[in-house]
Every structure is written in C-alpha cells, then in structure tokens.
Simulated scan of single mutants.
Amino acid sequence: MVSNATVQLGHGSGGTMMRRLIDEVFLEAFDAPELHAGDDAGIAPLPPTGRIALSTDTFVVTPHTFPGGDIGRLAVCGTVNDVATSGARVRYLSCGFVIEEGFPLDDLRRICASMAAAAREAHVAIITGDTKVVERGGADGIYINTAGVGEVPEGVTLSGAACRPGDAVLVSGTLGDHGIAVMSVREGLAFSTDIESDAAPLNGLIADVLAAAPHTRCFRDPTRGGLASTLNEFVTASGVEIELDEAAIPVRPAVRAACDMLGYDPLQVANEGKMVAVVPADEAEPALAAMRANRYGADAAIIGTVREAAPTGPAVLVRTPWGSSRILDMLVGEQLPRIC
C-alpha cells in the first residue's frame, strides 16, 4: 500500500513503489480507459475518423546541464518519444515552466534554445506554454512540463499487452548512458572515458522500424527503472515470459564499470534516447537493420525472446554467459532521484 503520510523519492523511481503510486492514487482518481492501458501515450478518438496520441511529462532533473544535454533537450525528447511509442506522427508540444525567483535569465535562454533545437530535429512545433515563478526556495531553479500530441495512422495499434510467444525483443543501443552521465556530474565522479546522456528524439527511428516491420507489437523508451522496468511492464500486461541474452545486451564498458563501482545493475539505470521494440520473429532482422540505419540506432541489437509464461507467472529472465539464469526484477525504491 502507498503510505498515507508522504510522497517518498522512491515513488518517482520507475519501479514497484512508483507502480503502486500510479495504481492506488492516480488511476483511482483519473479513471480513464486510456490511462488503464498502461502505455506511454493515451490513444483517443479524433472525430470524425482519426485517432490522436497524447502524453505529458514533467522534468525536474538536477543538475540542469549534464554531459550530452540539459533539462530543455530532455523535456522535448522525452515527450516526443513517449508519443511516438504509440506509432503516432508527433505534431505539437506544449511546455510549462515553474521557475524559482532568482534563476538566471541567461540559463533560461540557453534552455529554451536547447528545446527549440530538439523540436526542430524532431520536426515538431511547440505551440503553447505557461510560466509560473515561485519564491526563492520554492523550486530547484526550474522545472519543465511538456505535453505532446500526434496522429495515429489508420491500422496502427501498438501496446505492451500485445507481446506473443516467439516474438523478438530489440533495443536501439547501449543502456545506462543517461543515468550514469547525470550521476557523474552530480557526485563529481571522474571516469577514464567520457560518458554522455543519450537524450535524443526517436520518432524518426520508430517510423523507420514500422516501415520495415509493420507488425511490430510495441515500443517503449526505458527511462526511469531502465530496461528492467520496461520489460516487466510488458510481461505483466501480456501474460508472457521474456528471456534475455545478457551477452547480447549493449552496455558501454565505462558504464558497466561505473555500475559495478556504484553497485547498480545497468539494466535498471535510466535511458533517455533508447527504444525497446517487440516484433514478430520473422520481422526481427528487418527491424534491426532499420534501427542500425538510423543515426540513433547504430548499436542496436536483438537481445531476447518472448515465451509462454511459466506456471509461476510472467517474468523476465536473463541468461548469463555461463549458462545460468537470473530473474530481472523491477527496480524497488529509488536508485538515483531527479534523473529526468
């Protein structure tokens, strides 16, 4: 049960505490079928014949600037990617700012320029917004909310509940880059190799994959809680089991070394420019080729297979290079707060 007293940092982790908060607070209050579907963007009718995908997110990352990006790029890319996971053509964004009194105008201009550049790259328009200024101490400099809307093409129906035994699981590139990049700046850690956030708009990559693999089951960007939370959401929604080949999962050596040092599982670390896709087995190679042909998918890989669930229920298993298997659980509690 969610505590009746206070919200804790773990409630924003992307793991089981966040799942309980969503189920027991937000879904109970906002009882819409689009929310209960559990996907990153809600699909709604658009009279007379169309459908829209709508998603919203709030970004509170600290520090505001980190290797490979800043809160502005993160806000645009994060929402573009959430809408695009539905297969929608992302069209428009809104942005809302909560700014602390005393926040430097030069920093605000830089963040807005970063947002504008990311929107141009994604071929979307920021068409509305809002600004609130709060007293000193009322916010950590700046928070940004973005909402996005897109058109869902006729015949496209993607959902985490659509995974079927025999399907292949793909990821568009190396995992854990964003979380470790933010951690390195926040904690003053130095690594022998530069680690940068992967924040990027992936709507073009998704469109390329759908063209090559038109029967794709679902997409999801593995943000808070990483690959572990994403795949556990899939198996729960679809009632299946996913087995991963650990040796096939791309992780940069520097990220793996940092995770070993900090005691993290890189499969539970946040990403902001990677996409997970589940596709029928006969479309796995075309989907992989489409990912690798995109600038943001050069390190894409087929990492696992969907199987019938065991009698014990849906689960995500990782097959190690030594032939053993381990259960990959969702993140419990908070690994790294204020990551996005």
Rank of each mutant, 00 (worst) to 15 (best):
E121Y: 13
E121R: 15
V124A: 00
V124N: 07
A125M: 11
I127R: 08
I127L: 15
T128Y: 12
T131D: 08
T131Q: 12
K132Y: 12
V134L: 04
V134R: 08
V134Q: 10
R136H: 10
R136D: 04
R136I: 05
R136P: 00
G137L: 02
G137M: 05
G138M: 07
G138R: 05
A139T: 09
A139P: 05
G141V: 02
G141F: 07
Y143R: 11
Y143T: 08
I144C: 02
I144H: 08
I144Q: 06
N145T: 14
N145L: 11
N145Y: 12
T146P: 05
T146I: 05
A147M: 06
G148K: 04
V149D: 09
V149K: 00
V149N: 01
G150A: 00
V152R: 03
V152A: 07
P153L: 04
E154Q: 03
E154W: 01
G155W: 08
V156D: 09
V156L: 05
T157S: 14
T157D: 14
T157L: 14
L158M: 10
L158P: 04
S159Y: 12
G160M: 13
A161K: 14
A161T: 06
A162Y: 06
C163I: 10
R164W: 14
R164M: 15
P165S: 07
P165G: 10
P165V: 13
P165F: 11
G166M: 15
G166F: 15
G166C: 15
G166W: 14
V169S: 06
S172L: 06
S172N: 08
T174D: 00
L175G: 04
L175H: 03
D177M: 13
H178R: 01
H178I: 04
A181Q: 08
M183D: 11
S184Y: 02
V185D: 09
R186C: 01
E187N: 04
G188E: 00
G188V: 11
L189C: 00
L189V: 05
F191R: 04
F191Q: 08
F191N: 06
F191W: 15
S192G: 13
T193D: 15
T193S: 10
T193V: 11
E196W: 11
E196G: 03
E196L: 13
S197E: 09
S197R: 00
